[in-house]
Design a protein around this nucleic acid. Structure first.
Lengths: 198, 198, 198, 198
DNA sequence: CATGAATGAGAGTTCATTCAT
DNA sequence: AATGAATGAACTCTCATTCAT
């Protein structure tokens, strides 16, 4: 009794949920949400499709659960940001931390960027949108000139897109990430000083 | 034959191909490529699915044909850019023209942005990628410091994303577009001057 | 050209829709709606499940279409009944005609009787219910004593159930149907005369 | 241990089997047998599906057990009927008692009526059929004319269907039930007297 | 007395695509 | 220039059931 279960199976027990999330994110990021079927996820985990449904109510819920786990740091960052004075130093610190969060969960954010059309229709579309508005609020002064507001948004874009689109630039990943952060920081700094004269 | 055709039908004669492209782009942009079925396109045009196959060999080909029509101006822009001296004025003019091209075919570029995961796997993925590298070549000096190269790329991102994500900023569309172009231009200008010290 | 299609296939062309309805009703009546799968229907017709969906939007729609075809005579009977005087003769004629309609589409009405739980939740549940209320209106005098109203309803029940539950009674089907009609007629006649003293 | 069990839990102890039967019947009657899943039953009881399998071997067995509990009075009624003389008084008394039994377990009989297609295929199909034949034997004189036999069967139908289909008739439930019983009694009485000439 | 985890089978449905007419 | 009819493959999801603990 018990001897019928080999080591691999035993290892799996109790962490299937986590493994589903991992594999799902991996495939979602690689091929997109729609093109990833539950059959594929299940096969890669060597379980049946029905097993996925034991752990998650729908395909969408798998994604939501991944989302919630991986964006937690950003929620906390925004909360932290709200409690700080709206100084330049704060904003720079926010960018730095945001950048770290993006790097930490890079595959997930790559997924969000490449699957906007899909995400829009899902529950996480709204969730993410709200989170982004939160970021905006702590970076942007709503009374600043339009151009400075655009600068701040551009800073966030730059970090998001810079995460995944600089492959054919020279330099190590480390260097490129540093450069991206610097450009973003400059944009926010200029916005903060209102230095938008040509 | 002929007498049974009402005005609407007659109007359609000969331009069905164009109408398919229009409706397809509209739906692709609105719902995404994967979530738009040929049935839907056909229904909206009041023809059968088989009719689509008379005009296009596959679903993908519809998209390719739209792509080719709408990115023609950018091909020309890149060719023009290559023939110019790599001066600051040239770069600024390129941005201006690129910006116009984006505005002109906004739904298409919104589609490209929101469906990256899908597009990656399709033929237009590579086509678009190459086109983007062309843009890079005429904007970026490959000998410039990394940070200046990033600035240029950030300028392009800013225009792309700025097209679709500034809804809740104050001001008219016109004003916002102007601000976006200005931020992009500043980035490229700073990159050109190598002015990256704070 | 054309030579690749054998006779059986050719025969099928153009009447697949009808054949789907026939087979569906047959199976629905035999096994119940829920226990009959589209796979089963398709297999018996030697087409694919997808072919069913070319002709009908959903499983439920197959049933609805059968319903509409087969209950048409009853719709007409009710309309006819409404235009007649509410005499005893009219009522007796209605019962006779209703009885004929039941016999004519016996498998369908057997289905309706045996699948009430299912039908309740489907669109035809309401449709059928309204049709039955129509019957009631032309048979029952709303001012009559309750017991006479019940007699009329009992008459209708008797015909419905008598259609399918008299197998182990002696006599031919013909004789049994005649007896059923007679019992129903007696009930309505008694109700009409108000002869309900014990 | 035991200290961790709150009152609701304690109350449940030992009567889970009964509670399963209750909830199952409730749902079966409401939605039908097929549309009621074990998941649903388990959720409503706040136990797991596996718990159901501790008490019953299959879904069908839950239904069988309910069936056996609730039709016991009818078994006894039939046995009683068999021992009585086949007088009119006996038959009338049988109808009265049968009527009471139906009212007593109304949801169950409603279930049997609305799920005939399902029940036919299950073990209780045959059980119920035999029980009904038992009723027939004590109500019907096999030597009587066909029409009188039909009358008796009609009487039983009337009671069954009258239980659930008189909602939109005027009067209280009590009054309607009384009327139904009276109509049934009249039918059996007429059958007994062979009074089938108009 | 019951749960947690999983399975195998199958459901209804949708899709891009084909082809004879 | 287009239709009507159909297919094959895939999809998400649900179900009754099992079994070690």
């Amino acid at each position: 009794m018990g001897g019928t279960m080999d080591d691999t199976k035993r290892q799996r027990r109790g962490n299937t949920r986590q493994r589903i999330q991992d594999v799902a994110l991996e495939l979602f990021a690689e091929q997109g949400y729609e093109k990833t079927s539950l059959r594929e996820i299940a096969e890669r985990l060597d379980v049946t499709k029905a097993a996925l449904y034991y752990h998650f109510k729908t395909k969408e819920e798998i994604l939501v659960s991944v989302y919630e786990d991986l964006t937690q740091p950003i929620v906390e960052l925004i909360e932290w940001g709200r409690r700080q004075p709206q100084s330049l130093e704060t904003k720079q610190e926010i960018l730095r931390r945001y950048h770290d969060a993006l790097v930490e969960a890079a595959p997930f954010f790559r997924f969000m960027q490449e699957n906007q059309a899909t995400v829009k229709e899902l529950r996480i579309g709204e969730l993410f949108r709200n989170r982004m508005l939160g970021m905006r609020d702590i970076l942007i002064d709503p009374d600043a000139p339009l151009i400075d507001q655009v600068r701040c948004i551009s800073a966030v874009f730059t970090m998001h897109a810079g995460m995944f689109t600089l492959n054919d630039l020279p330099g190590t990943d480390e260097e490129k990430r540093k450069a991206v952060l610097e450009v973003a920081t400059t944009l926010v700094t200029e916005a903060h000083h209102g230095r938008h004269a040509s």
